[in-house]
Design a protein around this nucleic acid. Structure first.
Length: 270
DNA sequence: AAAACTACCTGAGTGC
DNA sequence: TGCACTCAGGTAGTTT
């Protein structure tokens, strides 16, 4: 499952293949995704793709009359390949272009979605309540301090909440908390303003670094051209239970916070 | 209103 | 080799 850097990497990878080209054919091979893929997406056929943007982990493919909203869920990926390449199991949605290439949505767990939307995207039910983008000025230390005020929920849950900030998935939430020296279990309202300021910057830094590296590869994520990302080798705590901290002699611990594996260093994170 | 919980689904890995 | 079990990157929708 792709986190924000993987989604951004995917978006950058598919854009040159799609933008400016015409959709020749849409094929729905399996409509049972998080929500059914409706036949209304066929409206894309014969239309030119104008641009591709992203809001949180939603990829937005714009045509003249509407927007295709894609989400990769936990196991989704997009591939660009020539029409002749054999389809794989779990290739559920195909967008064929007039160039002879096509984009395929592959998603074994089917937690992703494919929706067609007409009109103002900011008013869409999935988009309208989202918090700020992490890599913009809208996500500031002041914003994190304000939203954390008096919160008794853990700081990890708080930064993973899409209303606080989007794009801090499980891996990068763990990593940013490590870099900031904050224990994931600490109540959000009990983290100092100084630490929240550091955390704001570390969330930006870890996401930006991962995007630069082309996203982290875990299990089934492949970039759109099939090449793996290279970020995993520089994770400090995620999936490193029992291994030595890269910053001190202590050992990385694994705990569970709201059913999600959480990794931290007991010495470096207070 | 906020926090906690549930649901969606397949496949990889582990232990017996 | 097979079976039972646990776990996995997300998040909308429901319940407390």
């Amino acid at each position: 499952m792709p986190e924000l850097p993987e989604v951004e990497t995917t978006l950058r990878g598919i854009t040159p293949h799609l933008v400016g080209n015409r959709v020749a054919e849409i094929e729905i091979r399996e409509s049972r995704m998080r929500w059914p893929i409706e036949d209304e997406v066929l409206e894309m056929e014969q239309q030119e793709i104008m641009s591709i943007t992203r809001r949180a982990k939603y990829i937005l493919i714009h045509t003249q009359t509407g927007i295709l909203i894609l989400h990769l869920g936990m196991s989704g990926s997009l591939r660009i390949c020539p029409h002749e390449v054999e389809l794989k199991k779990h290739d559920h949605f195909i967008m064929r272009l007039d160039t002879g290439m096509e984009m395929r949505l592959h998603d074994p767990r089917r937690f992703g979605c494919v929706l067609w939307h007409k009109g103002d995207i900011t008013a869409h039910r999935l988009i309208k309540n989202l918090g700020p983008e992490p890599l913009t000025d809208a996500f500031s230390a002041e914003h994190l301090v304000t939203t954390s005020l008096a919160k008794t929920t853990t700081i990890k849950q708080h930064i993973m909440n899409n209303k606080t900030v989007v794009g801090a998935g499980n891996i990068y939430a763990c990593e940013a908390l490590f870099s900031s020296g904050i224990r994931p279990t600490r109540a959000a309202g009990k983290v100092s303003k100084r630490k929240l300021t550091i955390l704001t910057e570390e969330i930006k830094k870890v996401l930006a670094a991962a995007i630069t590296q082309g996203g982290t590869t875990l299990r089934d994520f492949l970039r759109e051209d099939g090449q793996p990302g290279y970020f995993k080798q520089q994770l400090n705590v995620y999936d490193r239970e029992g291994e030595r901290c890269r910053n001190c002699p202590d050992t990385i611990k694994r705990i569970v916070i709201s059913a999600r594996s959480t990794f931290y260093c007991p010495s470096c994170q207070k």
